[in-house]
Design a protein around this nucleic acid. Structure first.
Lengths: 300, 300
DNA sequence: TCAACGGAATAAGTATAACTTATTTATACT
DNA sequence: AGTATAAATAAGTTATACTTATTCCGTTGA
């Protein structure tokens, strides 16, 4: 014998009306149905909840105690329902985004606009390197990821939302900075500052060099875009980076762009989520927002 | 589609185990049974509570929200059950006693002993005159009543638990106080202080006088035993009262007892409750206690 | 005191819900 | 690819939640 919510509902109605018949009317039930539910509830708690003296129905002390609990339970059910309904909307709930480090440079810009459109969405932005990002995806932590390249290993539904041109940067006073259509072989004597293996930029660079049968004479390996930019600025060598990471430095002419033949290497940024994951309305909205914003910026 | 407690139980188990199969084992169910309950709960709230990615089961945000409510609901159910169990015992709960005013003199003594035996019972003692006591019985307010005489009108299960001898009192220095076996007719010149009509003592007195064909020459009517005692003490006249109301005054010799032939008038005190009312264990215990205590005092 | 009238309990039958076992589908592991 | 694991699906059974019809009981009114 176990208590059911139906029993509590019926009980509450009877407790309020102090009449089985009127409670039945209120619940659009027949009177015997009410009697049965009450009797079951009573037998499951082992006490009389009501007592009938003459033709009036009274609540016992057990009934009063039970009523308080029944009310709070039903109140909780109601608020649970309400909160569920809220989660169905776009303008509520939680949105967990993870981005690969390179994307960070304008993921923040995207997020700023999105949160302005949907202020009550609670956003978590997680900037991390590729390995831990994959680990987080494995644990289903992020709803949506922004990354440079959809990894083959993991099942990911990913769509490109924006071009990611990789360019070659140098100090503004580099001898070749005024040249046009520079061939790679002109750079055989240069030192290249490159990112760590596993980085998307690094992989793209290597593939580009392989295609052109080019091998740099010297490379210096560094982690993180900021470090590389500073190194190039300091004259340590050349580097291939996403144009989005150096927009500011180029306009301030603290870095220069070399016009290499075959460049920029056109790569793309992707918005993705685990295959099979049913995105919340909020996540869905964000995904769509990213795709729209990407094409809009491409046109502009 | 409506949420059931069963669904919440199953849901909570799955949420804790993050596995349908293990939850099923825990609940001694088969795995499909768990699947069904979860699916029903999900369809009734209109959101996925879990999502399956690969072979792992994750909770959605909706699931986390629901879990909190499910837990509080089940906690309330548990405490409701506990409180019900407490009410089944004698040593808890509420005991509402109503006594007719005359009984008050030792109802308090009885109660003192009873509450010492059952300290955690919350007792309400309602001292009131007969009319409102009957009204309260009609409204099923008291669990148990103590009164001088079971009224014919109302359906009452009443048992006598103690003798209630009515005696005649006078000032200690009254001329007749040393006499023995006084006949009523010797009191023709006396003034009698009598209680208001409707009082049990008054009714008993009148019946006694009628039997003896006696009519007092003068009567003064007063409400309440205290007033009557004080009046007699002040020499206003004689009075017939319950011996229990004047025990103290008799031992202190502030009042004297007249040895009237045919007295004391033997009346009795009754413990009763509405016919058909199922007494709580506590009320049952009190009723039995009163009956036991009554006979014990009668022997002593 | 005897119908007559509520109002709850009981009885019997039916639809729905909660289970079961058997099987299929999907994912991960080797 | 083949196997193992875990959830979903299908079909059938039992228990539960209802219904209607009827009985029982306490109150009211002539």
């Amino acid at each position: 014998m176990h208590i059911t919510i139906r029993q509590l509902q019926v009980f509450e109605a009877v407790a309020r009306q102090l009449s089985y018949t009127r409670a039945a009317e209120e619940l659009h039930l027949t009177q015997p149905a009410v009697s049965m539910q009450i009797k079951q509830l009573e037998s499951s708690v082992g006490l009389s909840l009501f007592e009938q003296l003459g033709k009036r129905v009274f609540m016992t002390q057990a009934g009063e105690t039970m009523l308080r609990h029944a009310q709070t339970i039903m109140r909780h059910l109601a608020t649970a329902r309400e909160e569920m309904d809220e989660l169905k909307g776009v303008d509520s709930g939680r949105l967990r985004i993870a981005v690969a480090s390179t994307v960070n440079y304008f993921a923040t810009r995207l997020l700023a606009t999105f949160t302005r459109l949907h202020p009550s969405v609670q956003v978590t932005l997680d900037v991390t390197n590729r390995e831990t990002l994959l680990q987080k995806l494995e644990d289903n932590q992020p709803d949506v990821v922004l990354m440079g390249k959809p990894p083959k290993g993991l099942d990911l539904d990913a769509d490109a939302f924006m071009d990611n041109p990789l360019i070659m940067i140098a100090r503004p006073d580099h001898p070749l900075s005024k040249h046009r259509s520079i061939a790679l072989k002109e750079l055989t004597e240069e030192t290249f500052v490159v990112r760590e293996p596993g980085s998307g930029t690094r992989i793209a660079m290597e593939r580009f060099f392989d295609q052109k049968y080019f091998t740099p004479s010297a490379t210096i390996e560094m982690t993180g875009n900021e470090t590389i930019k500073q190194s190039v600025e300091a004259g340590l060598g050349l580097a291939i980076v996403s144009v989005h990471t150096v927009e500011l430095e180029l306009t301030l002419e603290r870095l220069g762009r070399l016009d290499i033949r075959g460049m920029p290497i056109m790569r793309r940024w992707y918005v993705g989520h685990r295959r099979g994951k049913r995105l919340s309305p909020t996540a869905q909205a964000f995904r769509q927002f990213v795709l729209d914003e990407g094409t809009r910026q491409a046109v502009a």
